[in-house]
Amino acid sequence: MVFILGVNFHEQKLVKKALEKFYALGPQTSARILAKYCIHPRAKMGTLPPKTVTALTAELSTMTIENDAKRIVQDNIKRLRDMGTYRGRRHAMGLPVRGQQTRNQIATARKLNKVERRG
C-alpha cells in the first residue's frame, strides 16, 4: 500500500491511474506529472521509490485538486444563482441548463445541477 496525499493505493495500481483518481486531475496533467518525475507510463505504485512518493505528494499538495477544485465549481454556480441568471435558476431547480428538452431523460441534470454540486 502506498500513500499519496493521504490516499491509500494498491501496489499493483498504475501510477497514472492512481493520479487520475484525484478530482480535477485528468490524463493530460497526470502525463505531465509523470514526465516531471521521470516515471514511465507503465510504472506501478509498488515500484516507486519512497523519495518519488513524497515528491508526488508535495507536488499534488500545491495543485488545485479535490475539494479546492470542487469549491471553485460550486462558487461559480452560486455566483450565477446570486446574479439571478437563467443558468443559476436552472441549477437551483435541478433542471438542464443549456436549453435541452425536459420532457424526459434529464437524469444527469437531476443528479448534477445543484447549487451545492457534488461532482
Binding site: 505531465r32 509523470l34 516531471k36 518525475y37
Partner: peptide, 8 residues
Amino acid sequence: SDYRSPAF
C-alpha cells in the same frame, strides 16, 4: 522514443 523528458 515513447519516453518524455521532465519538460514533457
